[in-house]
């Protein structure tokens, strides 16, 4: 099978993924997880800021180096959709096919499973970007903050794209794991909460204990968020020395995770086939 066929598979899977999101059956998930979830997390952070009062800003600025908390946290929760995409898209794609009893049918076709999975993930990434825009718009309107500097949109976009590439590898690995572990929802629930905690969506990573900070550096999203925040809130370019560490880290992690994600997917998939566990749910 050639690349043209793979592209067809990718396109078909992408269209299916997009249609599923907007169908009656699934639109609520998008609203609940990718819109209401981040908005209410944002409100939680805002309420906590009101509770603690002005002294909170001093502590925050000292820890993070940023002047305002609200834009910091809006950008953080705008990334929540990216996390959701990473932990849900691949795993849920497999899980839904398992529940619908169609996973075997898909996996006996001669189509490239990687192209099929990439189509699903790309559909989710598209929705993640829509959600990110909604959170940024709602956050800016409701909390009416003003940026202190001209944002560097190019650097911010690169930050988002690198994060998506890095987290896609996670999606692959988790999708493979779903073949064996089955209960994607349970894994996702723990992972999602852990990622929100470790990657500094709601508070600076520097506020975490040393051991937790070390864990946070293994996630591409931590670095992607640092790049995007630096670019938007401080106007840094991608070549700014301040962004050197996150840029290099995310590039290394992405290059490392893509093959790991791919081989994990293949290994779990092969294991499930050998055990005859592909359809079981």
């Amino acid at each position: 099978m050639g690349y043209a066929f793979d592209l067809d598979v990718f396109r078909g899977s992408y269209r299916y993924s997009m249609l599923q999101t907007f169908r009656y059956m699934n639109a609520g998930f998008f609203v609940g997880l990718q819109v209401l979830g981040p908005i209410f997390f944002l409100l939680t952070s805002w309420t906590i800021l009101q509770i603690i009062g002005p002294s909170a800003l001093t502590t925050f600025t000292t820890t993070s180096g940023y002047a305002d908390y609200i834009p910091f946290v809006i950008l953080g929760f705008a990334f929540q959709a990216v996390i959701m995409n990473a932990v849900w898209s691949g795993a849920n794609g497999i899980r839904n096919e398992q529940q619908a009893g169609t996973v075997e049918a898909i996996f006996v076709t001669p189509s490239s499973k990687v192209a099929w999975m990439l189509g699903k993930i790309a559909g989710n990434i598209t929705m993640a970007l829509v959600s990110t825009s909604i959170i940024l718009t709602v956050g800016s309107l409701v909390f009416s903050f003003t940026l202190r500097t001209t944002p560097n949109i190019l650097a911010a976009t690169i930050g988002v794209l690198l994060t998506l590439a890095g987290m896609t590898a996670f999606a692959f690995a988790l999708a493979g794991l779903t073949f064996l572990a089955k209960r994607a929802d349970d894994i996702n629930q723990v992972l999602w909460t852990s990622l929100v905690f470790f990657t500094g969506l709601a508070f600076p990573v520097e506020a975490l204990p040393q051991w937790a900070q070390a864990i946070s550096w293994i996630f591409p999203i931590t670095h992607g968020l640092a790049i995007t925040r630096g670019a938007i809130l401080k106007g840094y370019s991608i070549f700014d020395p301040t962004l050197l560490f996150p840029v290099v880290s995310i590039l290394i992690l992405t290059l490392l995770y893509i093959p790991i994600g791919y081989f994990s997917f293949r290994t779990f998939f092969d294991k499930a086939r050998k055990k005859g566990a592909l359809t079981g749910y």
Binding site: F60, V190, F197, A202, F203
Partner: peptide, 29 residues
């Protein structure tokens, strides 16, 4: 029947609790 469910049930409170606490600790001691 699902080991992942049991595992997730045991583990989940940890990150959730940590997240709730650190939303404050990121802003004050």
């Amino acid at each position: 029947s699902y080991r992942t469910s049991v595992f997730a049930t045991i583990i989940w409170p940890l990150p959730l609790l940590a997240l709730n606490v650190y939303q404050y600790l990121g802003l004050a001691s």
